[in-house]
Simulated assay, not measured.
Amino acid sequence: MLSGTRATPVRMGLLALLWGSGFLWIKIALGGGLTPLHITIIRCALGAAVLLVLARAAGQRMPRDRRVWGHLLVAAFFCNALPFFLFSLGEQTVDSGVAGVLNATTPLWSLALGLMLRTERRLGPLRLAGLLLGFAGTLLIFAPWQQTGLASWGALALLAAAASYAVAFAYMARHLITRDAAPLGLSAAQLLTATGLTTLALPAAPTGTSFPTFTAITAVVVLGTLGTGVTFHLNSRLIAAEGPTAAATVGYLLPVVSVALGALVLGEEIGPRVVAGMAVVLVGVGLTRHQSRSDRLPLLGSAPDTLRSDTPSAALTSSPAPALSSSRPGPHQ
């Protein structure tokens, strides 16, 4: 077995590969005849099954408090049901690599949300520059001034998915992340709730023109078990063993992995403008994580900083959203 220092790159690489490949599996499943809603339902159900097994093995139970289940309903919608569906919807017209890049804007939405709700009390010049730079990179990717730009309903759906993650992280930080909570049990319950929510929409979903291919079914099974269920467990283990900085580093690798896999497996062509935009977005996100000494000092009598851009985003997400916004240990870390 690998020792601590040597095992860290392996854990990080494996997690980045599993998380970053999620956009590839979605694209393959769509191409094989599965609809966005079907992908979402199967993904949530399989992810929940994996987490239920892991929770049982760890001796963790799902919550019994009705109030907790009420919060899980909101979290499941914004963190799983809605973004999972929007990513599948967006990838009907947008390449999987671009989807991974736009997913990396989640920390920017988290910071912007904190500013709008005035829960982000301190924003130094570097973090402000990072926020502006990050959204400038997103604009560069969209390039609405060019005919070859990505300004389309599919790209907007992907951005909405990233923003949905930001809303979910803020809500969960306030209502679900507590020191006495069982993370595996809560996440299993959350994905079970998401499965129920998406299943309710099934009667309104259009039926596929043909039966899904074996390749599509395999892709969505991998997406649900490895890309959704197992990744949560690996991320939790990485944070526990190496700290939140290592988990945050994985977040920077996700768009790189998605772009590389899209090009190698699907033959997607990512132009220099999109690559440049990705680099600008990641630099911007990195700057938003910067905290001066005064930023780290709590305000006496201040409200909980649950909407700050450094809210632990890795906890309870079971999603491919990067942990870029996780700059300090959370309750489960």
Rank of each mutant, 00 (worst) to 15 (best):
G185M: 11
T40G: 03
A129H: 09
M62V: 08
M12W: 02
G32T: 12
F142Y: 10
L34G: 03
S258C: 10
V74R: 11
A188E: 05
G185N: 11
A45G: 13
P144Q: 13
G229R: 00
T228V: 07
G267F: 02
G271T: 09
L226I: 14
L223I: 00
L117Q: 06
A45W: 04
G301N: 01
G208T: 13
S258Q: 06
S313Q: 13
M12N: 10
A160K: 10
P203S: 13
Q190E: 12
A136F: 12
G70V: 09
T40F: 02
L117E: 05
A99S: 04
G22C: 11
R308K: 13
L200W: 12
A55I: 04
R127V: 11
D305K: 15
G124Y: 06
I177W: 02
R289F: 10
R118Y: 08
L158R: 10
M116C: 15
G227Q: 05
S302K: 09
T245C: 02
L200C: 10
Q146Y: 05
E120C: 08
E242M: 12
T245L: 15
A29E: 09
S236D: 15
L282D: 03
G31P: 01
A240W: 14
L133D: 02
A58P: 11
T199Y: 10
L223T: 00
R121C: 00
L300Y: 02
S302I: 02
T218N: 06
C44R: 02
L72W: 08
T317A: 15
L192V: 07
L111W: 03
S210Y: 14
T225A: 14
A157C: 00
V283W: 05
L52H: 04
W69C: 08
M116K: 05
H175L: 08
A143K: 09
F77N: 02
L108S: 05
I28C: 09
S319C: 10
L72G: 01
L113T: 06
N235F: 14
T35C: 03
W109A: 01
H233P: 01
V275R: 12
T138M: 15
G134A: 03
P36Q: 01
E91K: 03
F169A: 09
L156P: 00
V280C: 07
T5F: 04
G262R: 00
V68Q: 12
F78A: 07
R174M: 10
T148D: 15
V275M: 13
A303T: 05
A182F: 07
K27W: 11
A170S: 12
L223C: 06
A136N: 06
A136Q: 05
S309L: 03
R328F: 13
T228E: 09
A173S: 12
F214A: 15
S21H: 11
M116R: 13
A170F: 01
E269P: 00
R328Q: 13
S152G: 09
V265Q: 06
L54A: 15
S313G: 15
G134T: 11
E120N: 07
L297S: 07
Q92R: 15
D295N: 09
G47N: 05
G114N: 09
M62E: 08
P320L: 07
M172T: 12
L46R: 07
F232R: 00
V250R: 13
S236V: 07
T178A: 14
Q190W: 02
L324S: 02
T193N: 04
